[in-house]
Design a protein around this nucleic acid. Sequence first.
RNA 1: GAGGGCGUAGCUCAGUAGGUUAGAGCGACAGUUUGUGGCACUGUAGGUCGUGGGUUCGAGACCCAUCGUCCUCCCCA
Length: 455
Amino acid sequence: MSKPSLPQGTRDFSASVVRKRNYIFQTIRTVFELYGFQPLETPAMENLDTLMGKYGDEGDKLIFKILNNGLDNPSKQEQAKLEFDKILSGKNTKGLTERALRYDLTIPFARYVAMNHGQLTMPFKRYQIQPVWRADRPQKGRYREFYQCDADVVGSYSLLNEVELANIYASAFKQLGVDVTIKINSRKILAALAECCGGSDKLVDITVAIDKLDKIGLEKVKEELSERGLTSLQINTIETYLQIEGDNYSKIEQLKKIIGTNETGIKGIAELEYLLAYHKDSFVIKHLQADFTLARGLNYYTGVIFEVKANNAQMGSIGGGGRYDDLTGTFDVPNIPGVGISFGVDRIYDVMEELQLFPAEVQTGTQVLFFNLGEAESKAAFALMQSLRDKGVACELYHENSKFDKQFKYADKKQIPYAVILGSKELLENTVMIKNLITGTQVSLSNSELIGFQF
RNA sequence: GAGGGCGUAGCUCAGUAGGUUAGAGCGACAGUUUGUGGCACUGUAGGUCGUGGGUUCGAGACCCAUCGUCCUCCCCA
């Protein structure tokens, strides 16, 4: 073991990075609290059963599994080998691993609700800010350990929840200074399209293909649909669907011509219309964009779906969410509907760094550096410093009696805005010299004036 | 899971067609005669050139493998 290193896709965060990340967390947390959501934390690891099968085949592969302890016990070696053979043939993995790291915050929340629904006041609104882990290959904007900030409401079918969640997105990103587009769609609209074109069993084929529209283009999407067994008539309908353009209202009008007679479609369109109408006179409306190609992971969404994109940065989605009408059903607690959104903090950080959106104040740590100019002097400085600390001002006393030069440079490097100089002269007069290191101006203050000084 | 780029000092990199003791900038540390910083100047420390093989009289450079890292696709936050 020579050079230490980090596991792939994980990072250390230095002081300035932590401060900037905390600024994002705090902004989002404040908004969540303002909308009546309460905090929840769940363990980093869950039972593997809780997570498996909830994220689709791709998702299952990306779950970080935890090896069971005690496999090296000699008396269990034969058993362990048998279990390993089972894994190689794609069977269950319980003998070797029965726990896994959290993959997202939604499923652990669903598990929590399923376990505690008897005690929860419905509708139950919780927010959760914790790291999640994915065994993905790291690349730009993609990490193996990253934070999500989720807000979900369960126990309510009301579209008012969707309205508020859209508001939370718009409000949080406004405060962070990130210009975003909140794309919205309804899974019911996608379902209706499938019903009109080949039947609901083609839903996944259709959505997977049309989701790629902006990447591979219309022709390739049509090819893929054809390969997936759709007739040219059906593909024509989908083509018309994909060519819908314009503002939100004209898009919906065009959509009505395609699926407007389908019962599911009517419901889906009504959801989007409700959401748009509710925000008609709000600042939120200019961020909302109906996008019928938006699909997202279709595993549990049933109604409105959201996806947030930063407008001036090249970055995947920085947030996403939607309605799931039966999330806890897989935990044998049926009929609890819910809707939620998620913020991807690490991507938001990358976008804000790229666009230089962090305010300078975020970096402020220590406010005042007390110079150390001798034994008696530093003792007096220490007493004054403690008084300032009692008033909530972050202070440091230089650790040893060094030359001015060194003490100033220390303040510079830590970006400390004020220096308090208390030397032999000040000690006699019960005063201090306070210097603003940014402007370079300094004034002499009495000790009591220093305690009342506005930093 | 598939494909591509890159691994030289703490960081960013330079190292010409393979040729002696491997360089710069920034940073760190110390000093430019100990009560006023940022600048400037001087000096010091720090690298078995990711690792292991191979080609060669000779490899940081070329070949193979391996590990790491970054990126693209898939999927996602």
